[in-house]
Amino acid sequence: MNSWEAPAVPHWDFPRSATGIGVLVEAGDALGIEAGTILRGVGLGPADLSNPDLLVAPESELAAIRNLRTAAGHRPALAAEVGSAYRLTTFGILGYGLLSSPTLRDVISMTLRFIDLSYIFSTIAVESTGDRIEVRLGGGTLPGDVREFLVDRDLFAIHSVLGDLVPGGLPFTEVVFGGGRSAPTLAAYGERLGPVASSSEGEVGATAVFDAAHLDRPLPQGSTATVAVAETLCRDLAATRRTRGPVSSRARVAITGRLSQGAPMPSVAAELGVSPRTLRRRLAEEGTSYQRLLDDVRVELADRMLATGLLSVEDVAIRLGYAEASSFIHAFRRLTGTTPHRASVASRTRTPAARRA
């Protein structure tokens, strides 16, 4: 048995795009569940979900998932319904990279290298044995109340994305849901996967098998040149996220969601489940401080908002939690050495590639 490389990030505690919560809202809408119900306690509004640059902590997505499950009631195929709502376009630049991959082998490799640009919660491993490719999802580290749902959702999301990549879809020859599933759930899954699904005892997980003959068949939209560009963009985006420690990453996400209220440290610490003193100490251990994070987030968002040319300096100041534009202008000049107006003009005159750099 041969194994692919291990995922670049072996855990689920990484920031993820708010777009993932948008998928949950869309799935809920199809079931007649209002967005406000799913977003209760999440700290986001519907307008936030269309911003691919807005990162959220995994706890925010878990809260939305719990809200959705509660509101949906007893639906044996809920995880399958939600997972099937994930498409290549859901994954932003990673989805673009997967679509550009020449073969399914390349798709698997790119997924594992940039797993933290996805929305997966399960642990994932890919192994080959003769003519079989096994995709194994584990739920051992996931919260118990959503463990089974997350594993199954992730499996059906993979199934959906493979359907976008392979003409006619990629049929699984066998799917085993570890930890057992109820008879109605297994029957509902079988309607989507075909007569290949079964359950077994043991830990909660899932193993999907497909024919290794699919691995090196050319994909219709694969392009060596295009995938090279996409891989560079994925690498840059992942590097930006990975250079931050786990506490500072989560603090940045919480700060972003509270900027319009000034992002006071006590409220951010409360969201992270620690005291302000503990948060201060942990950030120091990661070589940063709360004020530095707040300044960084404000500058990054200010640059993006000013670059659009659609918002005035006063509008940007309000969105970033400043009481008045003059305070924002003074802080921006102190942190960047230029004024918001000059930064806005300079950004709009740069090429798109230069703005991404």
Rank of each mutant, 00 (worst) to 15 (best):
R244P: 03
G321N: 02
P7Y: 01
T308H: 03
R113P: 04
V176A: 07
A269F: 12
L49F: 04
E231I: 03
F328I: 02
L150M: 10
S312L: 02
L78R: 01
V126H: 10
D295P: 00
L259K: 05
L94H: 03
G36R: 12
L68T: 13
L104T: 08
L233F: 10
T256E: 15
E134V: 07
N2D: 15
R348T: 08
T308G: 15
L99M: 05
G32C: 02
I115C: 11
A206K: 07
G245Q: 09
P15Y: 11
T308L: 13
D152S: 12
G273Y: 01
D116M: 03
A183D: 15
A213E: 14
R304P: 02
G20N: 07
G41K: 06
S50I: 05
I120A: 14
G41M: 04
D315N: 10
T232P: 00
F210V: 09
P266I: 09
Q291P: 00
R304A: 15
G73R: 08
L294G: 06
T103P: 12
A325K: 13
S289Q: 03
S326K: 06
S289T: 13
L117P: 11
R356T: 13
R136S: 14
G28Y: 05
V126N: 09
M1W: 08
R334Y: 08
R258Q: 15
E127A: 00
F121N: 11
A197R: 06
R181T: 07
S122L: 01
R16K: 15
R304C: 03
G43H: 07
S312D: 07
T89V: 15
L320D: 01
L62D: 14
A325W: 06
V175N: 11
G273N: 09
A228T: 06
L31W: 04
T278H: 06
A225E: 14
T123E: 13
G194W: 06
T185D: 13
F149M: 11
R132Q: 14
V229A: 02
T90C: 12
F328P: 11
R282T: 12
L193C: 08
P220I: 04
